[in-house]
């Protein structure tokens, strides 16, 4: 291989990298601190591993490129008290993406007890879990088989500092420009021993327990969600109230759902 060929290959590689970077821009949203209360009254479990702020989403970012990083940042330093080996343990993040407005699923994932507004259907959802990808995949097959084609499990999810992140190939999301998509980021907790139908999510009951959120309902009519993006995703104080309003729900006397919490998408 002569020098001219090497230079050409290098130039091509740099060009491809630059073109990849130029094709899609990053996007960033912020979320107010202190709104990790679901619809307004949820409380953390009482075990010390659930430290204050550990489910309080403060920033969500998608980096540029063909293999963008999806990053969720919390208001507390991540810890790995359960030895998951990936830098975090208690959090689980669902990143719902609306790549094609007017289409997509309005049904949430099992265990979240939420649905999406008709004009905010999701096309893809990325699961950021500290569990091994194989375990998440097996759970998806068992509990959300009908949605499995649109559930993306990154091959590696890590936690560093306050940020949980994973890379996902753009082609796995159907291609396009992430900067133009709508997003909804749902913060839940990694539950290694989930209920029969729950996708590795932790329950919210009326009273908090050692490993159970409180402030909700003992039935499955309440959203099992601690924090979401709301408003314009700019971190304004009134976005906390917008979140509480979005997560409003209504239960029957027997714990059945009268009105599900209905999420919308946030766009730049």
């Amino acid at each position: 291989m002569n020098q001219k060929t090497r230079v050409s290959i290098c130039a091509l590689a740099v060009g491809l990298a630059l073109s990849g970077a130029a094709r899609a821009d990053g996007v960033k949203f912020t979320d107010p601190t202190g709104d990790d209360k679901g619809p307004g009254g949820y409380t953390y479990p009482t075990d010390a591993v659930y430290s204050p702020g550990s489910f309080d989403l403060v920033e969500f970012e998608v980096t540029a490129g063909d293999n963008p990083d999806f990053r969720a940042t919390f208001n507390d330093r991540l810890a790995d008290p359960w030895g998951m080996g990936v830098g975090f343990a208690t959090q689980m993040v669902f990143i719902f993406i609306d790549t094609t407005p007017g289409k997509g699923h309005t049904k949430g994932l099992p265990g979240l007890n939420v649905e999406f507004a008709p004009d905010a259907g999701w096309d893809k959802v990325i699961l950021l879990s500290p569990q091994p990808a194989s375990r998440v995949s097996a759970e998806v097959k068992a509990k959300a088989a009908d949605l499995a084609a649109d559930i993306v499990i990154p091959r590696r999810t890590t936690g560093v500092g306050k940020t949980v992140s994973a890379k996902v190939k753009l082609e796995d999301l159907g291609g396009g420009d992430p900067a133009t998509w709508g997003y909804q980021v749902v913060v839940q907790s990694n539950e290694g021993f989930p209920d029969k139908s729950d996708l590795l999510t932790r329950k919210v009951n009326e009273f908090e327990g050692q490993h159970r959120f409180g402030g909700g309902n003992d039935g499955d009519c309440d959203p099992h969600v601690m924090d979401v993006l709301a408003g314009k995703g700019a971190g304004a104080a009134d976005e906390a109230q917008a979140q509480y309003d979005m997560l409003k729900f209504e239960c029957g006397a027997d714990g059945s759902s009268v009105k599900r919490a209905t999420l919308t998408m946030i766009r730049k």
Partner: peptide
């Protein structure tokens, strides 16, 4: 057994076995 009597001053009383993970 976990009892949640609904008193203002007491959220719950748990009697029995635990790993006591609420402490440090």
């Amino acid at each position: 057994a976990r009892i949640t009597p609904g008193y203002e001053w007491l959220d719950s009383a748990t009697i029995g076995n635990s790993d006591w993970g609420m402490f440090d």
